[in-house]
Amino acid sequence: MPEYIEKVKFDDEGYLENHEHWSEDLAKTMAEEEGIYDLTSRHLEVIYAIRGEFAEKGEAPTLRRLTKVHGFPTKELYQLFPGGPGKKAARIAGVKKPHGCI
């Protein structure tokens, strides 16, 4: 097992326990688990926006915040992270499961 996976711990739902143990390599592996085999720079832009806000507030942004504040159109978020963009993006970003309803 590669070193970047070996040392990290996940919670029961597969979210990273410590967001500081995140790396782009890990994100790639987690993305593949979510069915995203080509993690593009655009994916990473969303991921870094989530990580930035999580570091600041301790909570992943809602999808609407990603659109309104960070400028990623709703449609694109659904295209980038099909089948549940809020949770998938947060998981790949290595932050805790989002609890927003919007």
Binding site: T62, T67, T74, Y78, I102
Partner: peptide, 18 residues
């Protein structure tokens, strides 16, 4: 405050969300 959009914007968001 809770990021809940107004009705017209919500309808647009729902359509964008599929």
């Amino acid at each position: 405050k809770l990021d809940i959009p107004h009705v017209d914007e919500f309808i647009e968001m729902l359509d964008d969300a599929g």
